[in-house]
């Protein structure tokens, strides 16, 4: 038997992309939908994503942003170290904090940090940054095989799915399949306006990955962000597909492929 599940990375308040991704997954007949955390951030009207997630029974785990917003922490715990990156992260964080309802903060607070699901014969670990740290960046170019391998035996799983970096990738290792599912919240720093989600297909003991591009009404999102007076740098990213902020955490390989 073959079963597909859909994995959504950081939503970052992009309610339009979330709706488009869910529509796409439903059209493929996928019933089990998961989100790997960071429901808010970056985009407008953070409360809009919650009814969508709940209406479609999207099972969520907690990202660093969710922990921060849910618990009214001082910052987003995104893991940036450069002053410019933190400047923009703080604008986004304060906006999201002020525009997330108490009920939704309570929802964020109670989310699990990780989750192991069984699909067919496959054990899948869902987490936000890495299996060991909520806000660890696992880039393709800085994650050696021997660093990733032990996580599979430590958690007794066949597949590990993460998000947090904003750029998708996958690697088949001797111990299992590692997938960074990308994000719905903003484009992938490749000059295109679409965002991405991930479909895992389990057939017997085999798992395959499909990264799915999601076209959505990015112009409407940009207009919403402008109306909410979010930074023009964020809006540029939505309109152009190039990251303009939070760049200093990017390693050489991921940075050189971008524009800024």
């Amino acid at each position: 038997m073959t079963t597909q599940i859909a994995l959504f990375g950081g939503v970052y308040s992009n309610y339009l992309a979330l709706e488009a991704a869910i529509t796409d997954a439903r059209a493929r007949g996928i019933s089990d939908l998961y989100c790997l955390g960071d429901l808010g951030a970056f985009g407008p009207f953070p409360d809009r994503v919650f009814p969508i997630l709940q209406r479609h029974n999207v099972q969520c785990i907690q990202g660093n942003y969710d922990d921060s917003i849910g618990n009214d922490l001082d910052n987003c715990q995104c893991g940036y170290t450069a002053e410019r990156d933190n400047y923009y992260a703080n604008i986004s964080y304060l906006y999201t904090q002020q525009h997330t309802s108490a009920d939704n903060k309570a929802f964020l607070r109670q989310l699990p940090r990780t989750r192991i699901i069984q699909v067919e014969q496959t054990q899948i670990l869902l987490c936000h940054g890495s299996p060991r740290k909520l806000n660890e960046f696992l880039w393709e170019s800085t994650s050696p095989d021997h660093f990733l391998e032990p996580f599979f035996s430590q958690h007794a799983v066949d597949v590990i799915a993460v998000t947090h970096t904003g750029i998708k990738w996958q690697r088949q290792l001797p111990s299992g399949l590692f997938v960074n599912v990308g994000v719905l919240g903003r484009p992938e720093n490749d000059g295109t306006t679409n965002v991405w989600y991930t479909i895992l297909e389990m057939s017997g003991s085999k798992t395959s990955v499909e990264f799915v591009p999601v076209e959505y009404d990015y112009q409407q999102l940009a207009q919403d962000m402008q109306n909410e007076q979010l930074p023009s740098e964020f809006i540029d990213t939505i309109n152009t597909g190039w990251w303009t902020t939070c760049l200093e955490v990017l390693p050489q390989k991921e940075r050189i492929s971008g524009k800024h």
Partner: peptide
Amino acid sequence: GAICSNSSLGLTSGD
């Protein structure tokens, strides 16, 4: 903190 890692402690990105 992080003084030996590659991450920046200052203003960067050409701005």
